[in-house]
Simulated scan of single mutants.
Amino acid sequence: MNTPGLDLPDARGRTGLDRAGRDLTGNPAVVVRDVELLAAAWHVLRRTTYDFRRRDGRWTTEQRETYDRGDGATVLLFDPRRRTVLLTRQFRFPVYVNGHPDGMFLETAAGLLDGDDPAAAIRREAAEELGVTIGELIEVFRPWTSPGSVTERLHCFAAPYSVESRTGEGGGLADEGEDIEAVELPFDKALAMIDSGEIADAKTIMLLQWAALKGALDSDR
């Protein structure tokens, strides 16, 4: 049987999407038995069956579904002279359907790598979403943000910006359905918005707290 994403190219030209994980050897307590492709309309949903040796020595058979959308990158843009940060605001349907009042989410500029290295990807996203040309780029950390179900690893950066570095219009790519507003906030207000719940995005919270802990916006740095 010819199936898109398996033996036939899918809409993105991919085949063999059921091969991921079959050759893993790093953990002798895990033996992958089967990988099923459940969906590949854009990103990839798989169900993997594997044997797992528990701490007491017993082997059990487990199944897990994983959502593979590729790795991503994000950046906290900060102006140390004016003590401001530059964020995006855009509609996010997944948070809207899960209880966010209106789905209009404040967050750091971000996007998938799409074949680029992380630094190149986040420079691209900062230009597309916020119209900022990034100079110095600080690599902060690379967490997995939802390790129970999503494979994505997020490359988190910080970068200074200024009025002069805002060289483009931003707003995102209209042909990808993006409609992004640039929101400049005093750093202290952004921190307070974590407590108020107005900023509820995990990557943005982590990067704002990193900036506070490291004194990234302190004038004497």
Rank of each mutant, 00 (worst) to 15 (best):
E176P: 01
L37N: 08
I134Q: 03
G148I: 07
Y96H: 15
Q209V: 06
Y50N: 08
V97H: 15
P80H: 10
I180L: 06
D188K: 04
E136Q: 14
L24Q: 14
D34K: 13
L154A: 07
F105K: 09
Y50I: 05
D7A: 14
E178F: 00
G171F: 05
M206C: 09
I199Y: 00
L8R: 11
A41V: 06
E129L: 07
A158Y: 00
L208E: 02
G135Q: 13
E198M: 08
R33A: 05
L37Q: 09
P80Y: 00
D117L: 07
D7N: 15
Q63E: 10
R81T: 13
A110D: 06
V140I: 15
E107I: 01
K214R: 13
L17K: 04
E62M: 08
A39C: 12
G177S: 13
D218P: 02
G131F: 02
R47H: 12
R92E: 11
D218N: 11
L191E: 03
R58N: 06
G72T: 04
F93M: 14
A11N: 12
E198P: 05
P143H: 10
A127V: 08
R54Y: 01
V32I: 09
A216N: 00
S162C: 13
L207G: 02
I180F: 08
R58P: 05
D220R: 11
R46I: 11
S146W: 14
H100D: 15
D7R: 10
G26S: 09
